[in-house]
Design a protein around this nucleic acid. Structure first.
Length: 197
DNA sequence: CTCTCGATGCGCT
DNA sequence: GCGCATCGAGAGA
């Protein structure tokens, strides 16, 4: 499998988000690989995007987003959950793509164990759920997706443009633009896409 | 099925 | 102190 390289991530965030659909996210866990096909993402685009954690400037928490592309930005939210993002755009431009849902492809037994009792789409149909399934927490914040050995993304089956759906992001706050920009992208009718609330 | 609400820790005002 | 890029349980229809 071909791992995505730095130049994949170093592009416009919406383009990276679009191209991440269908790719294979891989988590090295002990001596096996937990793999899921990316079926839903959201773009968070820098200082002008009020929903982006970096919109109010650089802090200890969002530091990784300001750095070079191709690194993991993992944050802790609601006192109990983690979310996994990939950093995009050139060094200095704070942007990232949130991975919101996966279709499990390998290591499903391990994912089932991590999800204690949940099964089927409940394994990975949400940004925090997939972090539980893949055992991702803040210890992975700042890890290199291009050279690292803990988590990375491989070239997967391309998604035809006609299958790409777009809409407003889920659960965000901010101005009118932040609330309405169609920066959530998913594979149309895919069963593992998260349920809107 | 839909809706509401509590959990729970930390980053930032 | 406030609010959060969420989830799961429980109630009601």
């Amino acid at each position: 499998m071909t791992r995505l390289k730095r130049d994949f991530y170093a592009r416009d965030t919406l383009t990276v988000a679009r191209d991440l659909l269908g790719q294979r996210m891989v988590r090295r866990w002990r001596d096996q690989e937990l793999v899921g096909r990316i079926v839903e993402v959201e773009a968070y685009v820098g200082q002008g995007d009020e929903a982006c954690h970096a919109s109010r400037g650089r802090t200890a928490r969002n530091e990784v987003m300001f750095g070079p592309p191709g690194y993991a930005y993992v944050y802790f939210v609601y006192g109990m959950h983690h979310c996994f993002n990939v950093v995009t755009e050139p060094n200095g431009f704070a942007a990232a793509v949130l991975i919101r849902a996966l279709e499990p492809l390998a290591g499903i037994e391990v994912m089932l164990a991590h999800r204690k009792g949940r099964q089927g789409v409940e394994l990975t149909n949400g940004p925090a759920k997939l972090c539980y399934a893949l055992d991702i927490d803040r210890s992975l914040n700042g890890t290199d997706l291009v050279m690292g050995q803990q988590v990375w993304i491989e070239r997967g089956q391309a998604v035809d443009e006609g299958l790409v759906a777009r809409g407003p992001r889920v659960g965000v706050r901010g101005d009118e633009h932040a609330l309405t920009a169609p920066w959530r992208l998913w594979i149309r009718d895919h069963p593992y896409v998260s349920k809107a609330r």
